[in-house]
Amino acid sequence: MLKDITLGQYFPGQSPIHRFDPRLKVLMVVAYIVALFCADGLWAYLFCFSMLALCIGLSRIRPKMMLRGLKPVLFIICFTAVLNMFYTPGVVLWHWWIFTLTREGIFNALYMVSRIVMLIMCTALLTYTTSPIALTDALEYLLGPLKKLRVPVHEFTMMMTIALRFIPTLIEETDKIMSAQKARGADFESGNLIARAKALVPVLVPLFVSAFRRADELATAMECRLYHGGEGRTRLNELHFARLDLLGGVLTAACVAAVFVISHFWA
């Protein structure tokens, strides 16, 4: 069933990775991605990998869960691998029709694949260990300077929060409407693309009507709870930069520096 999908994929916990300030975590992920793209050579990659492995270990998230995060991008990974393997010029190992396997290609493919895998895993680790609300708070803070340029940062993060809140509700509703229309003989499974798209009208119309009604009621309820935009708003959980965060930040910076050094000297 649709409602079985867990969204945001947050696994609450008390590990140091969970307890890091979400702003720091977002910055750490950015730094790590930069490091990944600058990494060059086996040793740099191994170093990046051990950093990630250490963090996963500390977070106590089961490695199986981490691998599950790769599923949606499996196709891209395979595609990248094939492209790199066969289309990198170099020492030819094997040739057939338009496929030319080179030694450089194999290395390139390995590097690219491990780069993508590590990139996905480190962002997955961020969402696994940070509650959606902390994440939006962090984004609101980090994007704060943009407010000066009249970018509606608060409105944007509020929208994200509400979207996250209502996605499960709307999924459940879609499920219900689909069942109800099926009970009236609607058929969503047969026919060509156009027929199927047309079959969705009886689901989409009620869904939109309901979403607008909900939005309307929610807006009134929010006004009744004194919402008046981001101005003068305080937070229940203020973000605190603790000693642990300082340690985390320094370590990350050191590791990123190390990646540069390793790439430069041992590549």
């Binding site: 009236r184 003989g185 609607a186 689901v203 009620p206 009507v209």
Partner: peptide, 24 residues
């Protein structure tokens, strides 16, 4: 008939909405 069935209405006219089942 599901709970709160009024939220399943989707057609332009009552006639067409009621006819949805029989048509199918």
């Amino acid at each position: 008939v599901f709970q709160y069935p009024e939220y399943q209405l989707f057609e332009e006219t009552v006639r067409r909405d009621v006819a949805f089942g029989p048509k199918n």
